[in-house]
Nucleic acid binder design. Structure first.
Lengths: 157, 157
DNA sequence: TATTGTTATACTCTATAACTATA
DNA sequence: TATAGTTATAGAGTATAACAATA
C-alpha cells in the first residue's frame, strides 16, 4: 500500500490519487508558470521588462514591420491591452509605430535602433533565466517539455 | 537548411532558433497556463470557483483541520491574499474557520457539510476540464508533463 | 458592415506595509 | 521577538463595452 489514501490525513475523505490537487496538471502548470514569471521579473528588472513586454519586443524584433493586430493574434492578447503597452514602449524609445502605406487603419511596428542594439543582451538574460528555473531538467527533458506545452496551447503540429 | 534563420522574415536580425520567443519554455508555460486557466473558469463557472479558490477547498478537503498559515504555505499564497478569499468562502457557506484549541492565534479550517457533499462533483468537473485541455496528450505524456512541472517548482523528488 | 486601434473600466491574482492579538 | 491573521493599497494581466477612423 503506497497510494494516497494509505497516507491520508485523519478525517480526510476518500480522494483518489488522480483527483488530488497536486496530481492536477493545471495546478502544476500554474505553480511552475508563477515561479518562472517571478524569476523572469528578477532577471529583467534592470531592463524594466516583464514577460509580456519582452514578448512584444522579441516578436517585433523577429518580424520587423509586423502589424499591431497580428502581434496581438500571435501573442494571444487583446488589442485593448496591447495599446497602452505599445504607447509605453514607444515613450521609452524602444518601439516605433508607423502608418501603413496602403491601409491607413494599420500601425506598423519596428524596434528603434536602441532597442535592436539592446535586444541580444536581453535575449541572453532570458537564456540565463531559463537555465536557472530549469536547472533540474536535462536538455532532453526541456525539449520534451517544450513539445508537450505546445501541444496544449497551439493548433499546429 | 531547416532552421529558424532560413525562414526568417525579411529584415529580421539573426536570432538563433534557441533564442526565439516560441522556443522559450517560460513563454510556452505561460501560454499553456493561461489556456488552462480560462478553460477552468468556463467549466467551474456554475460553481463560481476559480483555480485559486478551488485549490483552497481541495486542500482543506484533503487535510481537514489544516491551519490557514499552512494552507498558505502549501499553495504558495500570502496570508494577506488568502484572508479575504477565506472570508468569502465562509460567507458562501463552504468553509468553517474555528479557533485552535491551544493556540488562540490560529484559525483551523474545515469544509462545511454542504461543501463536502459538493466536492466530488467539483472534482469530476475538474477532471473533465483536464481531459479537455490535455486531449492531445497521451496518458504517458501527461505523466511525463506532471513530473517535469514538479521538477520546476517543488523542492522534493 | 467589418476591421484597426484606442479609451475607459472592472475583475483576478500577487505584493508590500501596517496593524492586532497571541506565543 | 516572532508568529497568525487581518486590512488597506498598489501593480500586473486580462476581459468587455463603446467609440472613431478606415476599408
Amino acid at each position: 500500500m503506497d497510494d494516497k489514501e494509505a497516507h491520508a490525513a485523519p478525517g480526510a475523505p476518500d480522494v483518489s490519487a488522480k483527483d488530488a490537487l497536486d496530481a492536477q496538471i493545471g495546478y502544476n502548470l500554474r505553480r511552475a508558470s508563477t515561479l518562472a514569471l517571478s524569476d523572469f521579473a528578477v532577471e529583467l528588472a534592470d531592463a524594466a521588462l516583464r514577460p509580456v513586454t519582452y514578448g512584444m519586443l522579441a516578436l517585433i524584433d523577429e518580424q520587423p514591420g509586423i502589424r499591431a493586430a497580428e502581434l496581438c493574434r500571435q501573442l494571444g492578447m487583446k488589442s485593448a491591452n496591447m495599446a497602452p503597452l505599445l504607447a509605453d514602449l514607444e515613450e521609452r524609445g524602444l518601439v516605433e509605430r508607423d502608418d501603413h502605406a496602403d491601409d491607413k487603419r494599420v500601425r506598423v511596428l519596428t524596434l528603434t535602433p536602441a532597442a535592436r542594439k539592446a535586444m541580444p543582451g536581453w535575449r541572453q538574460q532570458v537564456r540565463r533565466h531559463e537555465d536557472r528555473f530549469l536547472q533540474r531538467l536535462t536538455a532532453k527533458e526541456r525539449a520534451t517539455l517544450l513539445r508537450l506545452l505546445r501541444l496544449i496551447w497551439t493548433d499546429e503540429d
